[in-house]
């Protein structure tokens, strides 16, 4: 009886695994294709020559030369880290203030944040030109970080607020009674407690910065050499791509792998703490 039940269960599981496998083909095939093409020639033989951009400048089309990729890789890393750190630095104090303090205009500010979060970013692009110009930040990665962070802040603050909402008040009370000021309570007690939430924000912002394309393409005019623009420039002439497919597949893979690694390391944290910005 017991054994039979177990068999039933296993069989049932395979049914679902099969169903989901079919459904997942739509993702698996394109990605598998990408991996396969990164290591093969157009005619299907195995090769590592697609990866030559990792160690030397690679000529690819009528005398055009692909630069060594590491500069782009490093630049993307820098851009993503900068975005993540600035995002966190601005999100944490603001989210704490909205979650834990009372001030005139708090409901209004919160509503404004939600409206801003729902704001179509494309509508901001024109204005960015003027603002960046005014500060002399045109063609500067720092300028792009600033507008990127500015655009995504409302959403991240709202998410971070929900982490602060869950910190027990007793911790804050204890620290105040122990003689700490509110600021010290915030920095010494509350921030360490919301570390998992901060990690979520940090990882999300890093990923978003790592993948950023359009802002870099628009505001670092023709000069951006991050990973995204490295790959993106080849997409710009209406599908007629001059860079050989194998090389592009390899470059894309190099661009995706850090994301997958970062996600695999952090997936436990992400899944356990990410309850979404708005709870019921």
């Amino acid at each position: 009886m017991l054994i039979k039940k177990r068999e039933d269960q296993v069989k049932g599981a395979w049914r679902y695994i099969f169903l989901l496998s079919i459904f997942s083909l739509i993702i698996v095939i394109p990605y598998a294709w990408l991996v396969a093409r990164a290591f093969t020639t157009n005619t299907g033989e195995f090769t590592l020559s697609n990866w030559s951009f990792m160690w030397k400048e690679t000529p690819y089309f009528r005398g055009l030369v692909l630069p060594v990729v590491w500069k782009s890789f490093g630049l993307s890393l820098l851009f993503a880290s900068g975005t993540a750190i600035l995002m966190l630095a601005l999100t944490i104090p603001t989210a704490y203030a909205i979650s834990r303090t009372k001030f005139p205009g708090r409901p209004l500010l919160t509503k404004l944040m939600i409206i801003l979060d729902a704001f179509p970013t494309v509508a901001l692009l024109i204005g960015f030109f003027y603002v960046l110009n005014a500060f002399g930040l045109m063609n500067s990665y720092f300028g792009v970080i600033l507008i990127k962070v500015g655009m995504s802040l409302p959403g991240t603050i709202w998410l971070m607020k929900s982490f602060f909402d869950h910190v027990p008040w007793e911790l804050e009370w204890a620290a105040i009674v122990d003689g700490a000021t509110r600021f010290k309570t915030f920095t010494k007690i509350i921030i360490p407690v919301v570390k998992p939430g901060a990690a979520v924000i940090l990882i999300n912002s890093f990923l978003s910065g790592w993948g950023e394309y359009i802002l870099l393409n628009l505001f670092i005019i023709g000069k951006s050499t991050t990973m995204s623009t490295f790959i993106g420039m080849t997409l710009n002439n209406e599908g007629k791509i001059a860079v050989p497919f194998g090389i592009l597949a390899a470059a894309s893979l190099l661009y995706v792998i850090p994301v997958v690694i970062l996600f695999s390391i952090s997936q436990k944290t992400l899944l356990s703490v990410q309850q979404g910005g708005i709870k019921n």
Binding site: L207, G211, Y213, S228, I231, L235, L248, V256
Partner: peptide, 11 residues
């Protein structure tokens, strides 16, 4: 998780 350029490239 895939950067948008790579995602577009794949399709």
């Amino acid at each position: 998780l895939t950067p948008s350029v790579v995602y577009a490239f794949i399709w």
